[in-house]
Design a protein around this nucleic acid. Structure first.
Length: 136
DNA sequence: GCCAACGTTGGC
DNA sequence: GCCAACGTTGGC
């Protein structure tokens, strides 16, 4: 079982949208590193749902519903993929990027170093720590 | 295969 | 609105 962080612009697709939809397919990833992470995801993996832009915070958790399959919304003929996800837990208090940066246990997160990557692995410890902060 | 130019993302 | 980081493209 692995843990991941997935990023979205709230204006494009927010955690509230996922909460409302109950389920969605995570399409539109057009970056090889992010895609390779999608390909590694297994059913049941845990996800942190991060809002970039305005919020810059982890809004809650979600779960992977199935392994990757072709992203049929891709039109360039390249090998892009997507997975299905469902919401799990809405944080009472979103965990902001500033909080993450201020937390000694979270210094190694890729989120801090590689701000442009939209799908990245996180450790179980990091996942638990952020959940703890989100549910004060 | 290298590298400069350019585009995009996302934080500040 | 600016800039840093990084990816992509195209000329050589």
């Amino acid at each position: 079982m692995s843990c991941w962080l997935i990023k979205s612009e709230p204006a494009t697709y927010s955690f509230q949208d996922l909460w409302r939809d109950k389920k969605t397919f995570w399409n539109g990833v057009r970056n090889y590193q992010a895609r390779n992470n999608l390909k590694t995801m297994q059913k049941g993996d845990d996800l942190l749902f991060y809002h970039s832009g305005e919020d810059k915070a982890v809004m809650g958790t979600a779960q992977v519903l199935c392994a990757f399959y072709p992203d049929h919304t891709a039109t360039d003929g390249k090998d892009w993929v997507m997975v299905d996800v469902k919401p799990v837990k809405k944080f009472e208090a979103p965990v902001t990027l500033a909080q993450i940066k201020a937390n000694k246990k979270l210094q190694k997160m890729i989120l801090i170093k590689q701000s442009r990557l939209s799908v990245m692995p996180v450790t179980q410890l990091e996942f638990d720590e952020i959940c703890k902060q989100g549910t004060v």
